[in-house]
Amino acid sequence: MSEKLLEIKDLSVRYTTDGVISRAVNHLNLDLDKGEVLGLVGETGAGKTTTALTILRLLPKYTSEVDGEVFFEGKDILKLSEKEVRDIRGQKISMIFQDPMTSLNPVYTVGEQIADVIRFHNDNMSKAAVEARVDEMLKLVGIPPQRKTEFPHQFSGGMKQRVMIAIALACNPELLIADEPTTALDVTIQAQVIKMMRNLQKELNTAVILITHDLGIVANFCDKVAIMYGGEIVESGTLEEVFDKSTIHHPYTIGLFGSLPNITERTSRLTPIMGLTPHPSELPEGCKFHPRCPQCMEVCKTGDNPPKIDNGGTHVIQCHLYAEKEA
């Protein structure tokens, strides 16, 4: 256990569109052990997907700057050649996208799309062996192999997402990045897919980065949690640490929990976070969260990022509020 698989060091990503610079990811540090499940939580524009795309080197053309290091199995992905990255992509690291409806190719059968990945990464595999692997993958995700000759439109949303998972896992990757894999699905189907992913994760011991805004799914599935805001990780730790209501948290984390209508107890009013998430091109100075923070102090408004406070264990909070505690 605890063998380091992925280590992101001081990663910053900037996009430039029409001369406007968006600071999508800012000085992000993250690491993940083999077989570990990390929940990357945040709202639209927090930089979750950009982080994922950086790991896969799939950043869009308008990316103007990528700074920092992304070590995967000891190699810096950002320094590899395109050919070397291709060998990793789909083979060692694969990704499930949010929208199963648009991620599959409508003119190829489901079986062909799964076979495609297997063939790409296994040049001398026989046709029969590829087909056998396709059947095996379909069974693994709970689809009868006979359906491999069908096209994506013949599948329901939940089934399409299962196909995506089959494609992603076809080469037994070390790391699976799942970007909001169940957001487009109904709750009962979401429960099926999450349960299946959890079982597969245990069975194959794949490390997973689960990108989501749903804290409920995180609680169900993840070992570690990182809360993102304005391209930064504002709080991270084990699931138990971040979800522990008796300890200190980043005001944004508190706000996120307060925004959730609670199913187990009835509250008369929600306590939302005031204001709106800033666009990555207009991030404020100082702490990125300060204009929305109910506990904002003078020191938060200027200067660099707030200090990272170690709250015991692996629990880290990036906030001025708890700074005195350290000193």
Binding site: V187, D214, G216, V218, F243, F257, I263
Partner: peptide, 13 residues
Amino acid sequence: LLTAIPVPDASYK
């Protein structure tokens, strides 16, 4: 439907 809702609480892990 009710049991399918993921609860944001670490004890449900």
